[in-house]
């Protein structure tokens, strides 16, 4: 089976954020899946991946939480690919996979907790975890998108923002930096490739993998606001109309601190923030509402109308 076929039906792990502040990402991911004929089977009775917060309390508990999600997908649903659109979930599942394959202590703790919790222990290698970007890129790809685009994104200048968790640390993403066609951890390009195929013009954006301060959005808001403001201003200076995102924490962080910068620092940066799935969905002919544009905090409707997408 080629990658293309393998990813056509995947276990879908939305995670907590996609049921809350990141609902627009959930809606748009499902909508483009349906439009492109890709099947998403939600992981049954899933739990939180542990996020960064549980890792800070105890890294092995985070490993366990992520392993349970993969265990359900592998052992109860017989799936071999888990697709997680959230960078946090994607990162944590990848990290758990790495730890379970390379650290005997982690494997032992996960086994002990899984037995007590009453489910099969996840064994490393049972599933492959992919991001929503891999999912579209490896099934439909740029050529497939070009054929299906109904509303070209032409005339829209985009800064593609990937954030931290999609690329760092390097060792948990063995498939990245592995030659032509693979994703790069220093200059990621999968989102650029897909949006360009949908007609958009990508600007040269140096802060693709900069940090939005998501870890301290609420616990150290001033730091987050500074970091976000830097990202917004740099994208604007690079000539972008839109920052495309692929992580609910980054996306919400950019939106929240765009407002906070305006309110507390008096710095207003007029730039739209949209999930890449929303942009692709509209390019495929879906109405803004179908991809949850109304669920974003920042308002981009007028802009989308101007560009002929709404």
């Amino acid at each position: 089976m080629t990658t293309k076929d393998k990813y056509k039906k995947v276990a879908y792990y939305p995670g907590c954020a996609l049921e809350g502040t990141g609902h627009a990402y959930n809606r748009s991911t499902k909508a483009i899946g349906k439009e492109l004929g890709l099947e998403l089977v939600e992981v049954e009775n899933w739990n939180c991946c542990g996020a960064m917060e549980v890792k800070n309390i105890d890294p092995k508990i985070q490993t366990y939480l992520s392993s349970r999600v993969m265990s359900v997908a592998a052992n109860e649903m017989d799936m071999d690919v888990v697709m997680a659109p959230c960078n946090g979930c994607y990162h944590n599942l990848k990290k758990a996979e790495y730890d379970l394959a390379n650290d005997a202590d982690s494997a032992q703790v996960v086994d002990r907790l899984s037995k007590k919790a009453g489910h099969k222990t996840y064994e490393s290698g049972q599933v492959e975890t992919i991001h929503a970007l891999d999912w579209i890129k490896d099934t439909i790809g740029e050529d497939g998108l070009r054929e299906r685009v109904k509303n070209s994104l032409s005339g829209i200048k985009i800064a593609n923002y990937y954030g931290c968790m999609y690329t760092r640390p390097r060792h948990i993403f063995p498939e990245k930096d592995s030659g032509p066609g693979s994703e790069s951890t220093s200059k990621p390009h999968f989102m650029d490739d897909l949006l360009e195929a949908a007609g958009a013009e990508n600007v040269d954006f140096p802060l693709k993998t900069a940090c939005c301060g998501g870890a301290h959005t609420l616990s150290d808001s001033d730091t987050s606001t500074k970091l976000v403001l830097n990202i917004l201003k740099t994208a604007k200076l690079a000539g972008a109309d839109v920052i495309a995102t692929e992580c609910p924490t980054c996306h919400t962080g950019l939106e929240m601190h765009q407002i906070r910068a305006e309110k507390t620092l008096g710095e207003k940066v007029d730039i739209k923030i949209l999930y890449f799935t929303q942009l692709l969905g509209m390019a495929l002919g879906l109405k803004p509402k179908k991809v949850g544009v109304h669920e974003n905090i920042s308002d981009s409707m007028r802009f989308l109308k101007e560009k002929g997408l709404a």
């Binding site: 907590c16 954020a17 049921e19 809350g20 739990n47 939180c48 542990g50 996020a51 917060e53 549980v54 800070n56 309390i57 508990i61 939480l65 870890a215 301290h216 609420l218 616990s219 150290d220």
Partner: peptide, 18 residues
Amino acid sequence: SMHFDEVFTEQIVATGKI
């Protein structure tokens, strides 16, 4: 930050989700 981590972890222990 520690308070946030604790509140978060307590909720996951209690319900499995956030």
